[in-house]
Design a protein around this nucleic acid. Sequence first.
DNA 1: TCCATATGTCCAGACTTATCGACATATTGG
DNA 2: CCAATATGTCGATAAGTCTGGACATATGGA
Lengths: 123, 123
Amino acid sequence: MESERIILALAALAQPTRLDCFRLLVKHEPDGLPAGEIAAALAVPHNTMSAHLAVLARAGLVRSRRESRSIIYRADLAVLQQMTLFLLKDCCGGRPEVCAPVIDSLTPCCPPAKEKRRVRSRV
Amino acid sequence: MESERIILALAALAQPTRLDCFRLLVKHEPDGLPAGEIAAALAVPHNTMSAHLAVLARAGLVRSRRESRSIIYRADLAVLQQMTLFLLKDCCGGRPEVCAPVIDSLTPCCPPAKEKRRVRSRV
DNA sequence: TCCATATGTCCAGACTTATCGACATATTGG
DNA sequence: CCAATATGTCGATAAGTCTGGACATATGGA
């Protein structure tokens, strides 16, 4: 079942430290952050942070690469995308009118991203 | 912190029975389902289901109304909307190009969202 | 090689969650 | 009022998660 992966991602984010960690990494998206800086920024012991990072990695929400002595973590938005898509896909089971407002409220979040289609001024 | 509500919703959905339950209720969106039918549909003892429904309700993901002997549950998409918005809002912290693909991939899910309020394709 | 730095792993105790039998509550009909 | 139905609550056990001290591994420099 595909939902197992979704549950893994939901459970990974359903924890304060991990949610903060993920958000922090998203904020540093192109570059990423070394594990030590993440632990310091969130005021969490390094081993605790390490365990949380492992959970996030297992859920596919973050990726890591070694860089000299540090290990740099980056957020991976693909799973988040799948998760959102999964939850909204279900809501669209034949009834687009149900989730249309959700999509609608989401769109103004990234207005300048689209060029082919104009975003209505609904803010 | 607003994230507490988000975590409550994430944790509520991060459990197979509850995720299935929520999806089931979304599928029956306008009408809802009585607790007994939910338990039967998911092959879960009624008291176990009752506990799960309480968790979903506490997270604001479902609402209930009494109808004679039955209690009808309905999915409430508002929290789901806030959750998605919250996760994507963070990803838009100054860099719309990061989450634009996510929004992009979501849009085809509900194409009629282009229309302002005239969604009326009755099934 | 030895040491300092950066991170990961192991483990065990504290805490939280899931499950279901038994009982309680609410509604309807006889 | 009593019985049947529908659902909720309690309590105890089992299972899972969070946390941080102690130890292990990997990298780079002296």
